[in-house]
């Protein structure tokens, strides 16, 4: 039952949340407006380098949202989907692999002694640094982009998984054992749910690194993808396309982060 105090608290929370949303929209709107005003002035140097939204959006709309030249030019939609698939494939693979490796490291002291220094050594390497190796190993294709995302996230997530497993309250395991569960059941139904929120939070934090690395991978040769939009703009000296590419990168990154936050809030909300 909702009490008066509860209703008051809910109202206050929702009004705060609305206020924060409104202020955010207003600040972005003000920036766009300023950009439009300055960019549309006669002889403005800014408009040549950073054409205002009304100009570059109209230009891209004219090409019916096709990026590049010729009938085979991919659409904006195809570019966004390609990038998202690469990012999510890399992140999903790294999450699964990190959970398995983290479990292995926590179970076997020998594995921990052998692999932990290696993981610690590789974790600080920026995802972008893996691009040359990816290109040599896989050539210019999807696999290379997925590999870069994977390598950028996997080692950090493995360390996070190991730390989260160590944080699982031993009483949870004692209770599960006392209720007759087997060792693998305790892993699957106690340890995994207990560590997932923490690992997912770190994955979300590392998403930005993965996002940037896949864009760089796309910029070095892939035909489609959001990064390729930017590269196409550079090659064609088309500042409208460059600005549109930047808008896509920022917009998609923002939306994905919000989606991940929503997943965390709705599905992985608990703390152990």
């Amino acid at each position: 039952m909702k009490t008066g105090a509860n209703i008051g608290r809910t109202r206050s929370r929702s009004s705060t949340s609305f206020a924060s949303f409104a202020v955010g929209v207003a600040s972005v709107g003000a920036l766009v407006l300023l950009w439009e005003v300055v960019g549309r002035r006669e002889g403005s140097a800014l408009s040549a380098v950073m054409p205002p939204p009304s100009v570059f959006l109209a230009d891209v709309a004219e090409t019916q949202f096709h990026i590049g030249l010729g009938s085979n030019a991919p659409t904006v939609y195809q570019c966004v989907v390609s990038t998202l698939l690469r990012v999510f494939a890399g992140m999903a693979l790294s999450l699964v692999a990190a959970l398995i490796t983290g479990a292995l490291l926590s179970l076997s002291r020998t594995a921990r002694w052998i692999l932990t220094p290696l993981v610690n050594l590789l974790a600080p390497i920026a995802p972008i640094a893996w691009i040359p190796i990816a290109l040599v190993l896989f050539g210019i294709n999807n696999k290379a982009a997925v590999f870069v995302v994977f390598m950028g996230v996997y080692f950090v997530l493995t360390l996070a998984t190991l730390a989260e497993i160590r944080r699982v309250p031993p009483q949870y395991l004692k209770v599960a054992e006392n209720l007759g569960t087997s060792a693998w059941q305790r892993w699957l139904f106690v340890v995994m749910p207990a560590v997932l929120p923490g690992v997912f939070t770190l994955m979300r934090v590392n998403f930005m690194a993965a996002w940037m690395s896949v864009l760089v991978a796309e910029m070095v040769g892939l035909r489609d993808g959001v990064g390729a939009v930017l590269m196409m703009g550079r090659n064609l000296f088309n500042s409208n396309l460059i600005m549109f590419g930047m808008l896509l990168i920022g917009g998609c990154g923002f939306i994905i982060d919000k989606v991940l936050a929503l997943v965390q809030h709705r599905l992985l909300w608990w703390r152990t």
């Binding site: 926590s106 076997s108 497993i165 699982v168 395991l173 054992e177 892993w187």
Partner: peptide, 10 residues
Amino acid sequence: VEPALLSSAT
């Protein structure tokens, strides 16, 4: 007597 699970991790 700790649960077998994780005992080696500590």
